[in-house]
Design a protein around this nucleic acid. Sequence first.
DNA 1: CCCGATAAGTGTACTCCGTACACCTGTCGG
DNA 2: CCGACAGGTGTACGGAGTACACTTATCGGG
Lengths: 240, 240
Amino acid sequence: MTQQVEEATRRTPLNRDRVLSAAVVLADEAGIESLSMRRLAQELGVVPMALYKHVANKEELLDGMVGVIVGEIDPPVSGADWRNAVRLRILSARRSLLRHPWVRQVLESRTNRTPAVLGYVDSFIGMFLAGGFSVDLTHHVMHALGSRMWGFTQELFDDSANAASAPVTAETQAAMFQEMATRYPNILEVAMAAKHDDGSVVGQGCDDQFEFEFALDLLLDGFGRFHDQGWTSKRAKLAK
Amino acid sequence: MTQQVEEATRRTPLNRDRVLSAAVVLADEAGIESLSMRRLAQELGVVPMALYKHVANKEELLDGMVGVIVGEIDPPVSGADWRNAVRLRILSARRSLLRHPWVRQVLESRTNRTPAVLGYVDSFIGMFLAGGFSVDLTHHVMHALGSRMWGFTQELFDDSANAASAPVTAETQAAMFQEMATRYPNILEVAMAAKHDDGSVVGQGCDDQFEFEFALDLLLDGFGRFHDQGWTSKRAKLAK
DNA sequence: CCCGATAAGTGTACTCCGTACACCTGTCGG
DNA sequence: CCGACAGGTGTACGGAGTACACTTATCGGG
């Protein structure tokens, strides 16, 4: 009798997609470090071991989550030259990854050879080949792109965690400044030049999107030059 | 009486450096994933909590370990032009990091603002400034370098774990090949072209060092071009 | 109409992790 | 000689991933 009400509360018997979606939401909202099997189960109103009926283990869960995000990336635009196709695709990937910052860490931390990732890489290679790149050059170009293919760069000094930290007093600020000035004068100089209006000393105040596109275009320009001049690795190796 | 012998066995009362060195050795030999405070303590013939007298916590241990490796990187060569100075330094860093593969993961997984890392970055910036680069261009150039400053690239498909895995039968090999051919034809094509003599299907058979230098030189060439033509970010932004 | 197979969810328990905290011990300067 | 202090110990806690044995719900066929 009372049974019926409880059953209605938690219907839809939980499947792989619901598990993955919930995991993505949890990682988005609480951070990847808060994503544990136990926490995820709790979020789904279920006992931890129930998840293992839908994913083999945590590794596979992470793989699946990456797959979900990779699925959000726009497919290659058709009818564009290779440069624009690649560029737009990467910027689309970047938009997806910026919405889900945890993906970066997951992609970096483990070898990822899931169908979703392989599919993305494959279509990526396809854009170069379709653009007339030789298989040889395409290979090296893919290595040169590296993780930039996903739309992210290694951030040396990620200041994104600053919001939560305690407000620094003027004295500490001054002391840090002094410390930097004597120990790391070059970093300081660059950081000072980069800061626009906010008063932060190191990092930020610089336009990440601009930095990314700067490096990306630099690479793409290089690729194009090599392509135009019929570069081959054999010739390059002989020239050394 | 027997006391004396035991005490002689484990002399030298353990200090920060010994802890860090042991941690580095352990990570080198057993992999970073096997490095736990308990395991490390055991290796040092000490109880786990003893370590906390020398490092605040595991994070600081990892920071210290990175510091040890960064300390192994050659200082900038003097009297070279910026390009050679940067190139040689990066290749030196690469040699160090290849000896200690775990550093890559540690550097990637966390924001690293230790003195050792800051010092490295600072001296790195210094090489560009000394080469006549504007502060502005240096800033963007550092972003473009990203983790390549450390001598590593994001490896999409790291096959280094293959040695330990079970030998695949001819049938499985063939099945995998078939799978690849239909699902990821472009990856397959590139992989086939890259393989030299070994029979592996995906990855390896390609010269990682060559790939790295290919990308590095491409970037350095771009940097040089920008430098020569007096590039500034302001002008670049206006041009868009 | 029941029945057994299969899928989904549960409960308990194990091992391993980082580390807080109270304690002991050996050394050394006053 | 003594007391402070640095270095090492022992115990314990909470949290992680997950193995394994179990109940329960569903449903097609005799």
